[in-house]
Amino acid sequence: MTGAATPEGELIRRAQAGDQEAFGQLVAAHAERVYGGLRRFGLDPSEADEVAQEVFLRAWRGLPRFQARARLSTWLYRIAFNEAQRRLSRRPPPVIESGSGDEDPIAALPEAPQFGPEALALDREFERVVERALAQLPPEWRAAVVLRDIEGLSTEEAAAVAGVREAAFKSRLHRGRMRLRALLEPYLGLEEGEHG
């Protein structure tokens, strides 16, 4: 929501004036989406809990500079994206367990189930397959897919959150989607007869 005439706009105005109660209401309203974004950007649950606090603390300090015409949710995503990248950059490089270095990422995923895409989208096991495939993308590609396809931001909003021009964002999005397509291909429920 935007603008001072909306309830959220009023809360923002009050919070900008130092009203901690109003800010608390904004935190409650956006907590779930911020947490979800942090998890999708690649943080584990405990990291996401911790970083979500940092996101809202930075938002509190930055509120005086927040422009009321912007969407608060997009602005919070931008902070969450930056905080997640900061946290991810501090992680040690992933350890390859088997040491061979040439594992097929598909082999790390569970067996493809035998039902169609509608059922797949609701199945917890399949959710884990998608999450593991997402985790195999480079962070910038994963963030593009998360912002555009999972969180449902427009290309313009998502590019602003990622801090890149739209053309660069579209390139990351395309690469991320194509990589995911390849990883998920055995699970998509498309019949052999549909090939060609």
């Binding site: 396809d149 999972i150 989607r177 397509r181 998920l184 291909e185 498309l190």
Partner: peptide, 10 residues
């Protein structure tokens, strides 16, 4: 398959 991937993500 790309279209289906995007549908699943959404």
């Amino acid at each position: 398959s790309l279209a289906r991937t995007v549908t699943i993500l959404r």
